[in-house]
């Protein structure tokens, strides 16, 4: 079953002669449980594509489906509701609420979706433990490192058990060690069957996906499946007897 689907999805910016197609008639199917990475140079349309998939922007033309629901024609209210319940967002700049503790940030989406405080807390505790931040639950975001903030943001994205997690340059502001932590969490999500779409510049992030799409000028120019276990690594030793 496809969790995400687009048909002839198009987004144009600007008007008249300066009109640009950021996303140009894109057909995409993302089956349940897939980790998809989208790469491409700045301005290729990959972030716009992610915003269209998540209902943060409206397409100029074409269709977006999340599960069985077509989202591009929903009312603002219905779309906001669907976003809260079915989609988890992870951004490069984390976008945590500075005045709330780590735990409160993670509880917030569940509360907004109408869950009880008790339920929201239980879920937040569980998620913070999963991302290795159980001992940071009462800290403010400003007291966390960049890597810890992004892990908190991932926990928040998972608060409502979304059908899909959409991540926009999730490691863009992180150092190597923090990137490794995020990749480890993504690997766990993947093992748990979470559908994940990641827009990234980071080749390490792209390489750990199941599938990699390359975008140029609003279109897909390559769509590759990355498979495990090829034994290439052992041949790299570079030491001679």
């Amino acid at each position: 079953m496809n969790v995400l689907q687009t048909r002839r999805l198009t987004k144009e910016h600007g008007a008249g002669a300066s009109r640009v197609r950021a996303v140009d008639e894109v057909d995409l199917d993302v089956p349940e449980g897939q980790t998809l990475a989208v790469m491409g140079p700045s301005g290729c349309g990959k972030s716009t594509l992610l915003h269209l998939l998540g209902g943060l922007e409206r397409p100029t033309a074409g269709e977006v489906w999340i599960g069985q629901r077509r989202t591009d024609s929903l009312s603002e209210r219905a779309l906001a509701r669907l976003r809260r319940r079915s989609i988890g967002f992870v951004f490069q700049a984390f976008h945590l609420v500075d005045e709330l503790s780590t735990a409160e940030n993670v509880e917030l989406p569940a509360l907004l979706a109408g869950r009880s405080l008790r339920e929201a807390r239980r879920r937040a505790d569980f998620l913070l433990d999963q991302v290795g931040l159980a001992d940071r639950a009462r800290h403010l975001p400003s007291e966390l490192s960049g890597g810890q903030r992004q892990r908190a943001a991932i926990a928040r994205a998972l608060a409502n058990e979304p059908q899909v997690v959409l991540a926009d340059e999730p490691t863009g502001n992180l150092d190597t060690a923090a990137t490794t932590d995020v990749l480890r969490i993504f690997a766990e999500l993947r093992a748990a069957g979470q559908t994940l779409v990641i827009v990234t510049h980071d080749e390490r992030v792209a390489a750990t996906a199941d599938r990699l799409i390359s975008m140029r000028d609003g279109m897909f120019v390559d769509d590759t499946r990355l498979l495990d276990g090829t034994g290439r690594l052992a041949g790299l030793i570079g030491l001679e007897g």
Partner: peptide
């Protein structure tokens, strides 16, 4: 990318 994947998964 395939070999980078292998290295990353090994790490």
């Amino acid at each position: 990318l395939r070999i980078l994947r292998e290295a990353q998964l090994a790490a």
